[in-house]
Nucleic acid binder design. Structure first.
Lengths: 356, 356
DNA sequence: CTGAAAGCGCTTACAG
DNA sequence: CTGAAAGCGCTTACAG
């Protein structure tokens, strides 16, 4: 067969050319000690001469490590998940890992199970799951976990390592900003309430109002889309006492701005509007949007850091001396929880109330 | 070792439980004919009883197929690339493939080479490269290609299979729309001119103006970002004869809208603005943006279709009878080129010129 | 410091 | 229809 003539070189070819056994080639490739420098040089020359590249599949078969990390994400066309994914991919690759991704069609238990099954078939060494819904985080924690898992924007209470942005703090930052400007209270357009991010932002908002003795208005709920923001904006436009609104993401804030504009409500003169996420567009909204910036890439990087730690621990159980091997650990440390702090970006969509 | 007690079952375990040899288990798993139904049933029962899952690494070692497709993308935080990636991932997974992704930090030859090297180490069966810059498409075509490659938004002239949206046609649609509304001519804010998408949109725009005998204004060039659009918008705001502008993507269009608004130029009363991409936000811009919609997911799906075709061909060389084996094909068919058509979405940002 | 042997968990001819 | 054998290309003890 013509195809066999140019078959790519294998370790044995390198060994032959270097005049050594293939084990020695393997030693050189794996940076083992105990290889004579001259031998090493000959092997390296042979590798380069042949353009040899180790077969990672054969390697994986014996080491039982594929050097692949799996990522489960949802709606990667949104700025947040896309940026997080980018941070994850970059950090994983820098650490020498491949990254295999599956996007959930829907945020359901079945889709999650299917995704884990898919990645399991590929024998990934570890998993990052972007699990923004509490139900998903719970479902995940109940599934068998043959490999280390780190969750992103997940529920810190389900017992899995997690990296997230302090959403509650973000809600506090926004609400304090608006109250300080002199607003009597702040309305809120939230994300779907089964999303942990939505929940955290609501909490921060509500707590801040309560602490200030400000009335807590009814929450309007959207689905993160500009359209849902638009609908909420139409309802808000009719409220007599409205002077400030905190919208749970920038896309919905855009919809709110549009609805207010159509209702001839001026921002920020009549009403202040603040968003969340700091998408690249928000600086150019009409008017430029005050919002909360989250470092999504940092979140992705931290998730990989945690995962690599977990993988390292797997290989060095690091038992305290004296502990009987195989015995139960005396105190299991809680799973790590990394929190990334958001910060407020003030632009023109927020200002003092008209009457102030 | 405690870890070995719960080692996952292998084919031999299934064989033992079913009372057959492991080859028979393999036959059942691979849907080979010539397995007695009762034997098959016993094997299947054993597989399920044990929760056995085939070791894909061992399988890959002998079949020389990893069932993994590599994807090289650039700036996956943008709506277009992110949506394309989603379409690719979904189609690949539906076809039973894993997808391994690498995001280019920069659109350079070196980064591309590194990405291909990375994916090559993983022994992917095929590659999809989102290659929006002509230089990248050329560089790619000059690199060794050990596996089938399909490019997306690449250069159809470099001899690689390609799937792209008819950008030229998009430029025509926009320009005709504006001329038909009565504008004397149309200005253009383009993307970086080494991007194929930018080039196609410019071409369509220019050809349409020329065909209509309309003057062809100088092209303003942005970098796809809202900020660059804003800067171009500031320049445009000072032009006396400006009544219509075609902006090469929605993000830059947002910047243009902002700059015009600040200059008290009203859209569409004073100037019509049209974008490109139809991002989810554009319907809620101030005013809602007339734009061109591209089906990115469809592009992703088509890319996988082409790649799967190429993979299938690899395995069935399908020589015309009579041709000497190994002989050169008499007429090499040109690489496939799939074109997806965009369409115009008319919203409120475009209208007749004031004087008309 | 280096090589001969065994084995990772499969699939693919080859017998029967 | 089914099994014994060989082999995919590596790494890991084990000798020496």
């Amino acid at each position: 067969m013509a195809r066999n003539i140019h078959r790519s070189p294998v370790m044995a070819d390198v060994a032959r050319l270097a005049g050594v056994s293939h084990q020695t080639v393997s030693r050189v490739l794996n940076d083992h000690p105990n290889v004579r420098p001259e031998t090493r040089d000959r092997v390296i020359a042979a590798i380069e001469g042949l353009g040899y590249r180790r077969n990672s599949t054969a390697r994986a078969l014996v080491t039982k490590q594929t050097n692949t990390l799996g990522v489960v994400a949802f709606d990667t066309t949104l700025y947040g998940p896309a940026s997080t994914l980018y941070g994850i991919e970059r950090a994983a690759r820098d650490a020498g890992y491949f990254v295999s991704i599956v996007s959930l069609r829907e945020l359901t238990r079945d889709d999650l199970a299917e995704a884990l099954d898919h990645l399991g078939r590929q024998q990934v060494d570890g998993l990052v799951v972007i699990a923004p819904q509490s139900a998903v985080a719970v479902a995940l924690s109940q599934m068998p976990q043959p490999v280390p898992v780190v969750t992103v924007e997940g529920d810190a209470d389900v017992g899995l390592p997690v990296v997230n942005v302090d959403q509650r703090r973000g809600g506090v930052l926004v609400t304090e900003h608006l109250l300080r400007l002199g607003h009597r209270t702040v309305w809120h357009v939230s994300g779907p309430q089964d999303w942990l991010e939505a929940e955290g932002r609501i909490e921060g908002w509500r707590e801040t109002l309560l602490a200030a003795g400000a009335p807590v208005p009814e929450v309007l709920t959207g689905d993160w889309s500009p359209r849902s923001g638009y609908r909420c904006g139409q309802r808000l436009a009719g409220m007599a006492d409205l002077t400030a609104v905190f919208v749970a993401n920038d896309q919905m804030a855009l919809g709110v701005l549009r609805a207010l504009d159509e209702a001839r409500v001026r921002v920020p003169d009549d009403v202040s509007v603040v968003g969340f996420d700091d998408i690249p567009e928000s600086e150019f909204f009409a008017p430029p949007l005050t919002t909360v910036s989250q470092d999504f890439s940092e979140v992705g990087r931290k998730a990989i850091e945690l995962l690599l730690d977990a993988l390292a621990e797997e290989h060095e159980p690091a038992r305290p001396p004296g502990e009987p091997p195989g015995g139960p650990a005396e105190d299991t440390p809680p799973p790590p929880h990394v929190v990334v702090q958001p910060h407020l970006v003030v632009r023109r969509s927020s200002g003092p109330p008209r009457a102030a």
